[in-house]
Design a protein around this nucleic acid. Sequence first.
DNA 1: ATCAGCATGTAAGGCGTTACATGATTCA
DNA 2: TGAATCATGTAACGCCTTACATGCTGAT
Lengths: 191, 191
Amino acid sequence: MAREKKIDMVVLGLLSHESLTGYDIKKEIDGAISFFWKGSFGNIYPTLKELEAQGLVVRSAGKSGTAGQKAEESGREKIAYSITDSGRKALKEWLSEEKASNELRYETLLKLFFGGNADKSITLKNIEVFEQKITADLKMLKFYQSNLEKVLDEEDHVYFYLTVSFGVETYEAYLKWCGKARKLLKERIER
Amino acid sequence: MAREKKIDMVVLGLLSHESLTGYDIKKEIDGAISFFWKGSFGNIYPTLKELEAQGLVVRSAGKSGTAGQKAEESGREKIAYSITDSGRKALKEWLSEEKASNELRYETLLKLFFGGNADKSITLKNIEVFEQKITADLKMLKFYQSNLEKVLDEEDHVYFYLTVSFGVETYEAYLKWCGKARKLLKERIER
DNA sequence: ATCAGCATGTAAGGCGTTACATGATTCA
DNA sequence: TGAATCATGTAACGCCTTACATGCTGAT
């Protein structure tokens, strides 16, 4: 029944820490989470509506007081959401389910696998592009990691730290592999 | 425009080596490719039709001669496809495009990130489940890898070998991380 | 004879992205 | 005053999975 939708849990999870608007949620997802999960406005806003209908979140003034009052007077308002007790319960239930779908969809590996259909120089180029992207992303992840290291004592930060560390370690493994792969392909070209 | 569909390239890539039926293609995808790309019948058969309409593949008797003739007489037939020159060209063009979408969607990391909302024992359990799955998959990848190592001289096998090696190295990094993560969480529980 | 695996396909629906539409606020 | 960013939302569409429908073939 194609029940892989987890964006609702992402939203609940983020709201479990603080009240946020849809726009805030998008920004959070685009931060440290983005390397293993994505979200778009066309995804987030309808999810917030659904969660509200299910009573898992409620609209709240939040702490955005300054602009809040003025916005209410005009037509367009800023809507902050908070998690409810039911929401926390739903989140906990999901966390307790042992099954988890972990998916990798790497077009770079697809191109590598079928690399025999083009010149080795093309495969080499594809690896180099991948390497550059990973290098840039790794830099960002390490920045997050070093910031989290300083606040490891605070309860929730252990989880953020471990998640980011997963990224750092796998990305470092990617780069190590890139070096080996380039070397092996270059040897082949010269023969 | 949501142009992330690459199943057509998977099909063309597989057909670049030999003639295959839709069923064969599914089996191939479920093999060494499965750790970084998936495909289903409801995906593959329509793709074959489209590729045929575009002239990138053609129906062929293939090498399944024995059953082939009998099948033609009866109602249901086995349909093997071969790649055409246009198909090879399309494949090569895709390989030459530098952009590639690489996506990771790990629910395990999502649960870890929001682990603060449940007991540490639950997070620990989730990591252990992940660890077991990866251990099993790694065993399979290493099996593929050792088989490919023996035939590395044959042209195309370098690509298969490198792809599988990517899996082996990242999965080993995952397991290393799992050990560290378990240790860190256990220390926290005891305090 | 029966069951697993071979084999092809369609239909419905879920999930998510992109593009579009709209308007406020902030800063140079 | 104009651009960037904040902010909310909808519509269309694309991709993929699941479930269903059907029947053959080979082994026990």
